[in-house]
Design a protein around this nucleic acid. Sequence first.
DNA 1: CGTACGTTTGACTCTGTTCAATTGCCGTGG
DNA 2: CCACGGCAATTGAACAGAGTCAAACGTACG
Lengths: 254, 254
Amino acid sequence: MLQNSNSPRSRTNCYSCGLRELCLPVGLEEEEISAIDFLINRWSKVKRGGYLYRAGTNFQSLYIVRSGFFKTYVLHEDGREQVTGFHMPGEMLGLEAISTNVHTCHAVALENSETCEIPFSKLEEAGRIIPSLMHHFHKIMSSEIVHNHEAIALLGGMKAKERLINLLLNLSDRYAKLGYSSSKFSLFMTREEIGSYLGLKLETVSRAFSRLQKDGLIKINSKIVQLNNISWLKQRNQNNYPAIKDMNEDAKLQ
Amino acid sequence: MLQNSNSPRSRTNCYSCGLRELCLPVGLEEEEISAIDFLINRWSKVKRGGYLYRAGTNFQSLYIVRSGFFKTYVLHEDGREQVTGFHMPGEMLGLEAISTNVHTCHAVALENSETCEIPFSKLEEAGRIIPSLMHHFHKIMSSEIVHNHEAIALLGGMKAKERLINLLLNLSDRYAKLGYSSSKFSLFMTREEIGSYLGLKLETVSRAFSRLQKDGLIKINSKIVQLNNISWLKQRNQNNYPAIKDMNEDAKLQ
DNA sequence: CGTACGTTTGACTCTGTTCAATTGCCGTGG
DNA sequence: CCACGGCAATTGAACAGAGTCAAACGTACG
């Protein structure tokens, strides 16, 4: 049991980490992995409701969720919070802060969570020596941008029910990647947080859930949701933009 | 007139480029600038309505707007287009494609435009040799994420009039940085494109313009807009999230 | 000069918000 | 163990803001 996740050894050991194939070390050689183990100089727990970082604080490190569940949010002028994302194990937090060296959003744990901390200056140094590490880091940042574009498309063009289905399918996919059930999982966030993320009021979220349940598409019991027919939901509500097919349409436009 | 912007010489010369302080070379030494001139292997024109790249095509290069005005958009399943951003000189395009090596959005010129092309693999190579270049590139990607967060906040929590004011102030700031008037400028996009970006229908955009004009806040003549009292507009409609002030509120939350 | 496109404006509809009351759930303490 | 309080979630009814449909106007370009 040397590699038990609670042993001190595994605290700074990417090699034995269950998230290895989802996280920063993707695509690295064994020796390179041990090199980045070096970077990760801390391993911290954040209790439910606790802050990983706050807007306005100085940026030093990026974080990777090791276990648990986070939300990030910004505040509107009037104090209303706008959730900008939900974050699951293997996902990186803090990328927004690189531009100004100050965090521009708040990161809160919605469950008791664990994170790996990666001092950014060290990551840049290591990236110079290990090109594939740097490249993979660029991919992570880029996919964050893609993900944001999807969120913008969702907020800009979808109705309440579609937004909710989209979020559920998105969570479903991410749980699947982690090896959990894609059809039945827990929502760690409140209706209000879901609403904030989807640009809806909590009552609207609640009504949308009720309606989806009445239509037999899902089963929902407070925080536990079950998707009855994922492929049907996906068909009814594509969340990917079929790039190739689009090309024909575009040709006409030009 | 060796450095005239149409001379062949200046095509690959960052040193003499008017955007030098807004673009990739920010913070580099002179010798380093000549090193990145090396990277930029093409300099292309895109006519109004033409595509810089399309979703679904392979990713090779990033682009920087040299002159003109672009929009980027993704397509919803039903073919409706969702504008994800407007892009002015000095701004970088194509960052979304790094993650998959395929462009996930379309980039169209709204005016006759010019761009610099930066092969991404060469940029990564150069970044290994010039750490400050790599670091600045990371800042650019990060600020793209911040910008997306702002767009999400706008779409998630604002009313039509607020959204429009926000866009106008945003454009105003960006024009100011380029040395143009911040109070009177041209909108290169149609009402429909504005609406798509703001998550509104074109009629709603038009009505919002009319109302702002009737209230004396702006003057609008088809595509030319004049902001009558920028500081008042800003006060009435903050588009920054005052991070420091927020800290007090947050303390209560935890 | 005429067509096509973008814009403005009005009247009506509908989705989501607001306000309010009720229910359900869970942890605390009697 | 049950009663209580507090928070989250549900549901209903009235309301408001944005969407839809339609008509008319302006402007740019062939």
